[in-house]
Design a protein around this nucleic acid. Sequence first.
DNA 1: CTGCTGACCCAAG
DNA 2: CCTTGGGCCAGCA
Length: 107
Amino acid sequence: MENFKQKAINHIKAIPFGKVASYGQIAVYAGSPRAARAVGMILNKLPADTEVPWWRVINNEGKLTIRGSIFNRDDQQSLLEKEGVKFKKEHEVEIEKYRWKTHELKL
DNA sequence: CTGCTGACCCAAG
DNA sequence: CCTTGGGCCAGCA
């Protein structure tokens, strides 16, 4: 039985290049719809060299709410811009335009 | 088991 | 734009 953490990480790894998902969304896919904050905590503990595309996870309003010590909002924004994501203002994207939808995903 | 913490979310004011 | 306030819950000491 996979735990919440493993599922969350698997789902984040599944976010396609150039797409984003919200913390709450990942929590839903991981089977615990109201554990959005826990998703942030998991990301906060990832090593700097992780293969998990943490920068594709933003909040539900399209804002970058990163609080990690190694990377900041500017780092995350440039990583997203490298994937073609356009920002409507500093640290805020039009999330509905880039939101990853998992219609084919089996929970 | 208890009691925090927090890269969240939503609704008000 | 900003701030409160309440709810939430996985992880950790």
